[in-house]
């Protein structure tokens, strides 16, 4: 019973990995590609490692799989966040149908406030 459940988790994980990599090819923009690939691959890899843990139990291999799943669950969103923020300040354009850009609005407002303060000092 637990073996069947583990194989189901492994098949779900491989499916999400493949769909994430397909989204990396098919989406039109850097930010769309990044969110599709990161979310899909994180969920898929955690499912696959959880399936290996269910197949092997509290073994050397099962505990290492659990550690690897926990590590990927922590570090993958951190890397995607740092990369998207740095590429936004590097100046990579969004897609032409994008309707909102909160980080750009915040930077623009901060620039306007700093310029007004400088004019008041002068």
């Amino acid at each position: 019973m637990i073996s069947i459940l583990g194989w189901i988790f492994i098949i779900i994980g491989v499916t999400f990995d493949l769909l994430g990599c397909l989204g990396l090819v098919r989406f039109p923009d850097l930010y769309n590609r990044m969110q599709a690939a990161t979310k899909g691959v994180t969920l898929g890899t955690c499912g696959l490692m959880l399936g290996i843990f269910l197949l092997k139990g509290f073994n050397v291999m099962g505990v290492k799989a659990l550690v690897c799943a926990f590590f990927i669950l922590i570090t993958m969103p951190v890397a995607a966040h740092a990369l998207s923020r740095s590429s936004h300040s590097f100046g990579i354009k969004m897609w032409h149908k994008t309707i909102i850009d909160k980080l750009g609005q915040d930077k623009f407002n901060k620039d306007v406030i700093a310029k007004n303060e400088q004019e008041e000092k002068e």
């Binding site: 994430g20 990599c21 696959l48 990369l83």
Partner: peptide, 10 residues
């Protein structure tokens, strides 16, 4: 390259 590394992990 990051996603390719995670695929190699799997």
């Amino acid at each position: 390259v990051d996603i390719m590394g995670i695929s190699f992990t799997c």
